[in-house]
Amino acid sequence: MRSSLNLFLLAVLASGGAVLAQTSSTYNLGRTPTQEEIRTWDIAISPDGKELPPGRGSAKEGAAIYAQKCASCHGPTGAEQGQTDFPLVGGKGTLTTLHPVRTLGSFWPFATTIWDYIRRAMPQGKEGSLTVDEVYAVTAYLLYRNGIIQESDSLNATSLPKIQMPNRNGFVPAKPAWKPREKRPFGFYP
């Protein structure tokens, strides 16, 4: 017991004080990624937008990019059905009907999701080909087409997360909340 504690202290001293990192590993498998590796892999954008990279783009610039790189699948204006479940534009006032049209304008609670998704997944088949500025621009264009921002507006890492999406308050926490090993009320699957 005692000698293993001593060994442990020696290891801590030798490692220059990185106590938590060293002691938490039981198996010592895997390696530490470089900051550069983490930066290039990490494309997840949170609702508060803290991971958004610097850059900018306007709805006007976005219109040209949309026509060139998106319209072939999503239709000339985005309001067409296209290849998706729902069009990219429209759907206002349909959420309480039997056939709600959940578009990014009528339904999505955060504008950051649009940015994240276009960068990671669009244009389909050429994912990752847009520049950061192009992603801001085409996001701005889709928000403009959904009547959420003005045509003259431009977006960047600070302004995008501040956009109030129309259905933000339409998202409510799941009820009842899920708790490990807790019984659910009949008929509800949290």
């Binding site: 997840a44 954008i45 949170s46 609702p47 479940d85 729902f86 959420l95 309480t96 709600p100 959940r102 990014l104 339904f107 999505w108 609670p109 955060f110 950051t112 999701t113 994240d116 998704y117 997944a121 259905n167 339409g170 998202f171 409510v172 926490p173 799941a174 009820k175």
Partner: peptide
């Protein structure tokens, strides 16, 4: 993180227009 699927298909939209 409210990813695309969490913001669309996987959100549970109730008849009152509220999505869980």
């Amino acid at each position: 993180y409210m990813t695309q699927h969490e913001s669309t298909h996987n959100a549970n939209l109730h008849p009152d227009g509220k999505a869980h």
